[in-house]
Design a protein around this nucleic acid. Structure first.
Length: 289
DNA sequence: ATCCAGGTTGTCC
DNA sequence: GGACAACATGGA
């Protein structure tokens, strides 16, 4: 089946196993909201979209002024949703390990999104020592206060994610309305280093993961976990295995001998299955509770 | 009221 | 090197 596209709408066939709701609600992104009818609305790279899954397709509507030319939306979303990566192969790798197999069976509809590097870095700086619900609130207020308003068809106010250049000159007091507490100074340091070119996020894609991590950790408030999240979700480095409290518990309980070596190259995806699984089955890693 | 959340920093040893 | 409190905020 082929993608069907007009200037504002797109019917995009989905690969087997993909799940829109799992992908948008697994803690890798914070700007998609589920609507009462089950569709999702969100802002990606300055445009507003509404998406629903059905009949083996993604039904995508652009609610803002289309930024892409005719025919370009399908390539854009194929890439955003990572439809060209073979997740079946990843799940086959996971299948050799009972715990990973269970996680992959439960959460195997997840794809690792290709988010903007700056947005991924910034949102995961805000994520530290925080819960997903509140992270989403911080991100929303950051965008409302410092992003650009985007006119949309549905009468709702949407905002772009603020660029490093917009944030760099601000002070921690300026960020008060975001209510992100001690994280404000971290966001500002990241914005300054990204906007000055001291750290060029896009160029880190070429660097090996350990080297890219070292660069990112030059930013105040960026440690190994946030760096790995920025690389996994913003630069699609699938070998990253960010270790938060949930994943830490899961790894301790399920892989005391260490994470299976043959899965390491795609540990980021496997990790995301695990994360989604233990969030819904905390008893599976009982002991840490 | 105390604990916890997709952690990191600064300060002790 | 490792251990540990402190850090803002808000929900359970």
């Amino acid at each position: 089946m082929q993608a069907v596209e007009t200037r504002r709408e797109l019917l995009l066939p989905i690969p087997p196993g993909f799940s829109l709701s799992q992908t948008l609600d697994c803690g890798q992104c914070f700007r998609w909201k589920v609507q009462p009818d089950g569709s999702w609305t969100g802002v990606v790279e300055g445009s507003v979209f509404r998406i629903r899954e059905g009949e083996g397709c993604l039904h995508i509507v652009c609610l803002s002024a289309p930024h892409r030319a005719e025919g370009e939306m399908s390539d854009f979303f194929r890439r955003y949703f990572d439809f060209d990566t073979d997740y079946r192969a990843i799940k086959t790798l996971c299948g050799a390990h009972p715990a990973l197999r269970a996680a992959a069976e439960f959460a195997g509809g997840i794809h690792i999104l290709r988010q903007q590097p700056w947005e991924a870095l910034c949102t995961f700086i805000l994520s530290q020592n925080n819960n997903i619900k509140r992270i989403a609130g911080l991100v929303e207020r950051l965008c409302e206060n410092f992003g650009q308003a985007i006119p949309a068809l549905d009468g709702t106010r949407y905002f772009s994610f603020p660029s490093p250049e917009v944030l760099a000159p601000l002070t921690a007091e300026d960020l008060a309305p975001v209510r992100c507490g001690f994280r404000a100074k971290y966001v500002l340091d990241a914005a300054r280093k990204a906007s000055s070119g001291e750290i060029r996020l896009e160029e880190l894609e070429r660097a090996p993961t350990p080297e890219a991590m070292e660069r990112l950790m030059e930013i105040k408030g960026v440690g190994p976990k946030v760096a790995q999240c920025a690389l996994l979700f913003g630069l699609h480095k699938l070998d990253c295995l960010p270790r938060d409290v949930w994943i830490g518990r899961a790894l301790d309980a399920l892989f005391p001998e260490g994470f299976p070596e043959e899965v390491l190259p795609v540990a980021g995806a496997a990790q995301q299955y695990l994360f989604h699984y233990v969030r819904h089955h905390p008893e599976a890693v009982e002991g840490g509770k």
